[in-house]
Design a protein around this nucleic acid. Structure first.
Lengths: 73, 73
DNA sequence: AGGAATTCGGGTAATTTGGGTT
DNA sequence: ACTGTCCAAATTACCCGAATTC
């Protein structure tokens, strides 16, 4: 499954917007901002002050906080 | 501008809040929490500690526990 | 250069959590 | 064993206007 989301740059880390992270966790984008402020998740700032998040970190966090029925962590 | 602002990279799972799951089963949200704690249903935690549930899993559980009248198998 | 959508900030409701109890 | 309710504390959701992104 080749991602057709964004133009891929060589070996660069994919960055996610607050809205995209919010969708993954089913929370409000502002909540993602609070996570960043609280240091629960790393963030990168655009020169204009908007936050971006590393996809790998977000997905790792999501996996870490997931409790499946058939699989005890 | 176009509809390609942020194309869905989401082959992702739709998540439900405890309150939404509680509504589906017509129980108290706390009861849903107990199901999660008992491992009866999978859950995903936000970094803040709130739970989210996979909609597909919830629906499947609903269907599995549903007893309909047997009208011509 | 203009426009739509998103994301800043802050502030204030609503929901969720966990424990203990019924 | 299972569920509903009470409580305080923590987390999250929605409101606004202004700035940023594309």
């Amino acid at each position: 499954m080749t991602a057709t989301t964004q133009p891929r740059q060589n070996g660069q880390e994919q960055l996610l917007t607050p809205g995209e992270v919010a969708t993954l966790f089913r929370v409000d984008p502002k909540t993602v901002t609070r996570w960043a402020t609280a240091g629960r998740i790393g963030s990168i700032r655009t020169p204009g002050g908007h936050r971006r998040f590393r996809e790998s970190e977000v997905r790792a966090l999501l996996a870490e906080l997931t409790n499946d029925v058939n699989r005890s962590i």
